[in-house]
Design a protein around this nucleic acid. Sequence first.
DNA 1: TTTCCTATCT
DNA 2: TAGATAGGAA
Length: 546
Amino acid sequence: MENGFQSTRAEAFPAGLRVLVVDDDVTWLKVLEKMLKKCSYEVTTCCLAIDALNMLRERKDGFDIVISDVNMPDMDGFKLLELVGLEMDLPVIMMSVDGETSRVMKGVQHGACDYLLKPVRMKELKNIWQHVFRKKIHEVKDIESYEVIDDIHLMRNGFERFEDSHLLSGEVGPKKILDLMNIPWLTRENVASHLQKYRLYLSRLEKESEPNTAFGCFKQTDFSPKDPSVGFGLQSSITAHQSREACSSFGFSSGEVHVQPIDTEIKEGDLKDIIPLLPSPEARNALVGKLHEIQKKTSGSQIDFSSSVGSVGLDVKCNSFDATGLRKHQWSGGFSDMQFKRQTEPDNKLYRHASPAFVSPHSSIETNCLQPAPSVNAGAPISKMEKESSSGSGIKRLCGRYQTSNVTYLPAMTSTESPLPLQPESGIGNILLSGRACTMNESSSAKSNSFCHSKSSSWGYDQKDLFEASTAVLQSSNENLPVSSLQDYDYVENTVLNNIEFLEYDDLELFAALPGQHCDRLKFNSDYNLSEPVEYPAMDQGLFIV
DNA sequence: TTTCCTATCT
DNA sequence: TAGATAGGAA
């Protein structure tokens, strides 16, 4: 199994495991060194925690595991444990003569992968390799999850071509979408099926919005948690376009805020092509009206159109300004958040739970650049999910389809100040206000967090951004959720068991030097004769995969 | 024959 | 609720 070890060491594993032992008691150091060497491990000993830390820092990849005493004069063992965990991400085993549960718990909470009671048993030392192995397995799992992102990038590229090919002009069929996405494992049936769902959704949305929602008007219902138009699953962004005249409007999905100067004027032909795709009669009528304006070349009127196929979705944004530049309509919608099952590759397990989804059109908004919509900026109620998130239970499923995301409401502002650092001169500016719409999946880990923590720098539906947003979820959630650093609870139990049995030693010289209370607890057992090399049982991966 | 759409199943 | 599939229509 590829687990990250260098090939030669991997073959010999667990023999050659590089162990750093830290204990201020020289006698114990010698005992442990000898025992560990009997296990065919490479042993380095250190009397001071600070020296151990320096050694670890100097030899970044020089050790596989650390065994540290809890009580040391220069540095608390827990502190060392914390630092090693933070800086080296190495498994650390704590050891102490004190087996008090609270103490053991503290060790585990600080990130110890095991807590051994002195005197340490040979059996326990023999099995410390499992902690290294377990960690490697987790790392491999993380890497596999990263590969999902690579394929998501593949989808993004497909959508970019989708945009480049002007697919928006004319009817969009599953075949064409499929061809242009150019994703090998995707089938036309996949696309068709989800297109069907998407259209069903649109028709439902249209029916629901007919009685009270006119195009261009911002309604409170736009932010209903059950309204998919607010955003789907990963799709969580607020898009604010800023015209050259510094006229701003805000399109809401949720979560992210993007500010972008609009510099692409719509062409008449483009508009004609877009109109049939609009989800509602109001939207179509609005654009038809604007099309007439263009055709008439009415002075002072401007329609800005930006079509963006984000990384994983087709997104259409239409913005229209009146002659004064004070008001505009915006419609935004398209396909996004595409996740498809990989049917044709049964060996691929990464997408087993993935599924396609077409994102809904975003809520349409009419606003005035001089007087931002009060319902948006001031006193707007927080959506249900936002409340849940802030109350500490806001972890949502990552792959929720047709499911609303959080809406992040901007703080109240006056006409003279903008809640967003608009950058009319310098181009695109993005602000991630909040990304609590979704969670990492079950394979998420601290490693995943570090992988994803870089900030978003693009706008639109960038799947990467969404993952980053997901990370932000976790990071922000940490403040609210009782996140425990307990990594493997079974260690706690294991530690308790340590108290039951006694150790096995056969080196009487060494034990003669041990403090009396230690010797008292010893039981010599010929099962672990130090003169014989230790044999390891065949590794059963199933035993160690959590 | 291919593609799309709809209904139905899972 | 959403994806898969079957069957009819163009």
